[in-house]
């Protein structure tokens, strides 16, 4: 049963899967065609709703991975949670040509705008890198000059999303740095043993608080709280730290 809607307000629309790409064994990027898409800002998300034949519905929020520049796709990268209600359908079942219900883009808080003059520090845990990737892509598209640093914490080298694309941004977009932190297994020959993100990681690879960077932290709730606490302890202004928790555990 469709829920009633207030006239003139955000509502659900049908999105069609036009292309899909496997990012890792458990993560898939969906390219969606959404008629009359108004465009979006990097960091915004959409809500996805699935309805079972018996009418049972489940709704989840997913960050948009793509940047928007007068056109383009709505791209979502979905990490499969094995006990999830929605993500296994999106990663394993949904086929090109199928439709899902989508509402958005939404969220004007966890966004980066080209007009922000400050350096940017991005901290992503697991699939928390997705909205940060939209920011990196938007910066690249706009040829923006604000210095960007991304600290991306993942379990193993096989879990890295956008594994081929991230090094290209480092190469092609001056002022963008990437640090990959591995929590369970580091690549062969890595000088750093696997560990969770800590004060030393952020102190070494982030911006000093004196630079007053805009900080964006996204990932599982425990990751976000740890990283945000460290930023504050290092002297970053809490007002410059924006967080997006995915909930659950990593």
């Amino acid at each position: 049963m469709a829920r009633a809607a207030l006239p003139g307000r955000l509502t659900w629309r049908a999105a069609t899967l036009t292309e899909a790409r496997q990012e890792t064994p458990s993560a898939r990027t969906l390219m969606l065609d959404v008629p009359d898409w108004p465009g979006h800002l990097p960091g915004q998300h959409v809500d996805v709703r699935l309805t079972a034949p018996d009418g049972y519905r489940a709704q989840r929020s997913y960050s948009i991975a793509s940047a928007w520049a007068e056109g383009g796709n709505v791209e979502l990268t979905i990490q499969r949670l094995d006990d999830g209600e929605v993500s296994p359908y999106l990663t394993d079942v949904l086929e090109v040509g199928d439709q899902i219900e989508l509402r958005g883009p939404v969220g004007g808080w966890f966004v980066w705008r080209e007009t922000q003059p400050r350096p940017v520090l991005l901290l992503g845990g697991g699939s928390g890198v997705v909205p940060l990737m939209a920011m990196v892509r938007a910066r690249g598209l706009a040829k923006a000059r604000q210095p960007f640093r991304l600290i991306y914490s993942v379990r193993t080298p096989w879990d890295v999303l956008y594994r081929d694309e991230l090094p290209r941004h480092v190469r092609d977009n001056p002022g963008f740095d990437l640090y990959l932190n591995y929590t369970r297994k580091a690549p062969e020959g890595s000088p750093n043993a696997p560990k969770r993100i800590d004060v030393a990681t952020i102190n070494t690879h982030g911006w000093p608080p004196d630079f007053e960077p805009d900080c964006y932290v996204c990932g599982p709730t425990t990751f976000v709280e740890t990283a945000a606490d460290i930023l504050v302890a290092l002297g970053h202004d809490p007002k410059r730290i924006r967080t997006e928790r995915f909930g659950g555990t990593s």
């Binding site: 509502t11 929020s61 509402r103 958005g104 709730t221 909930g247």
Partner: peptide, 17 residues
């Protein structure tokens, strides 16, 4: 688990302009 107010953006967008 706890989320951020951000996650209400869709639900609130159905109500407010």
């Amino acid at each position: 688990s706890k989320l951020d107010g951000n996650a209400m953006a869709g639900d609130l967008g159905e109500i407010f302009a």
